[in-house]
Design a protein around this nucleic acid. Sequence first.
DNA 1: AACGCGACCTGCGAGC
DNA 2: TGCTCGCAGGTCGCGT
Length: 329
Amino acid sequence: MPELPEVEVVRRGLARWVRGRSITGVDVLDARSIRRHVLGAEDFIGNLEHATVLDVVRRGKFLWMPLAMGNPHEANPHEANPHEANPHELPKVALMAHLGMSGQLLMQDPDVPDEKHLKVRIRLSPVDGMPEQLRFVDQRIFGGLFVTSLVPTADGGPGGLGETPLPEIAEEASHIARDPLDPCFSFDTFYRKLKNRKTGIKRALLDQSVISGIGNIYADEALWRARLHYARATDTMRRADAERLVDAARDVMNAALAAGGTSFDSLYVNVNGDSGYFARSLNAYGRAGELCGRCEAAGLHSIMKREQFMNRSSYTCPVCQPRPRNGRW
DNA sequence: AACGCGACCTGCGAGC
DNA sequence: TGCTCGCAGGTCGCGT
């Protein structure tokens, strides 16, 4: 399932193929995949046709493509752009994508048969040597596409990671915090939010308004690396604890990103949930019943355990991640 | 404010 | 064999 490193792999791969190209047509094969576009498929398509993709930008697990609206020579007169006389006042619009649990964004040639779970096809202006279709494929439909506005960022910095960062962010991503791979990530801001919370650390890690891009898998990995139990009270977190945790999250994400980077040269921009390219290096997630590697290396024998927490599984080592009493040590 | 839970989905594996 | 059930995951929105 795509978490931040996988989404970043997609962002980089996609940017190479779609920047500067215009959208010539859109097929919505399953309206459920654009359900967050409340005005429906016709409006979705109308917003995209004739638009030019300026960039591919990411914050956390949200990915969006800022758009320049249609070429006046091609524009439908019924959709005349009142701002076309002044390009600096072009509407700030973006195509937003969230991969959810199983979403993929694929570059494909037109002769490639439709994928079983193909939901949306976006045709791009032809360019020599480049695939002509961007396809959104999603088996479980937790993800989706929609057109949204770009709004100024709260901190005045760039909206997210992109090739040519803008000081705007897609509206639906504007409430989420910067992620640990963002050069503008502020540890002080994160730590202040953490200390003001009255909750457990894992709940805070999964709260995208505290820190973004961390899902269940990387939360467990980061906590294991930092030797913290998921129920540790946020307001008891010392600065050093929090630094260790953020460093751990960043390390594990960078390792996954490095592993996923092998697909950059491929024509096939892929997010494959079961590729397992990072699964081999997991120390906590999914390892119930197995030895804790760190304890084993220290000559101790402890078995990783799985518990239900927040309606999902949490994996911890009972020895090196002891449950705090009353949320404290 | 915090939190728990249901809704949204499909495929897969376990158990009967 | 074929059925049901639980589970997996991220995000949003609602009720407490």
